[in-house]
């Protein structure tokens, strides 16, 4: 009896489109224009990235608000090993970033030299790509905010 296990390649390639709807679509369009949009909840707090429905009550949300491209790091982890499909060819921080004026955080990369340059609460600013297409990666990454 052979001790060889049967194996076969199975590669699925399949095209999809995505209908983003009125809220996510507006957020992505904003990114293309270099603008970060959030959405206001009934209690006045702001969700960013915006959601179509209130995360707690389920109410439909419609009031988009323009935010800045700066914020602070709520929490972070160091990604020290470079792997395929990561945003950088060098180690970076994966961080929850609360945009100024928002009450929730978005996940993005922070480009710094090492974990010693990261700290919870640190100020960051978006580094935009020059060619933008309406995608979360239109923000290339965040980087420490330089205060004049």
């Amino acid at each position: 009896m052979a001790d060889e296990l049967l194996s076969a390649p199975m590669t699925i390639e399949y095209p999809f489109t995505r209908t983003t709807g009125p809220v996510i679509g507006a957020f992505l369009t904003g990114l293309r224009e270099g603008v970060v949009l959030g959405i206001k909840r009934a209690d006045g707090s702001v969700v960013c990235p915006p959601t179509e429905y209130d995360p707690e009550t389920g109410d439909a949300l419609t009031e988009m608000v323009e935010l800045t491209d700066t914020g602070h790091v709520m929490s972070w982890t160091w990604s020290g090993e470079v792997r395929e499909h990561q945003p950088f060819d060098r180690p970076y921080a994966l961080a929850l970033i609360q945009i100024d004026g928002a009450d929730t955080a978005m996940l993005h990369g922070v480009d710094v030299d090492g974990p010693e340059a990261m700290s919870t609460g640190m100020r960051v600013k978006a580094r935009w790509r020059s060619e933008r297409e309406g995608h979360i990666r239109d923000i290339a990454c965040f980087e420490p905010e330089v205060t004049p």
Binding site: T19, G21, V23
Partner: peptide, 12 residues
């Protein structure tokens, strides 16, 4: 066939 509504909007 609709290209305006998200999945969330559709079920809603």
């Amino acid at each position: 066939s609709t290209r305006e509504t998200s999945i969330a909007g559709l079920v809603r």
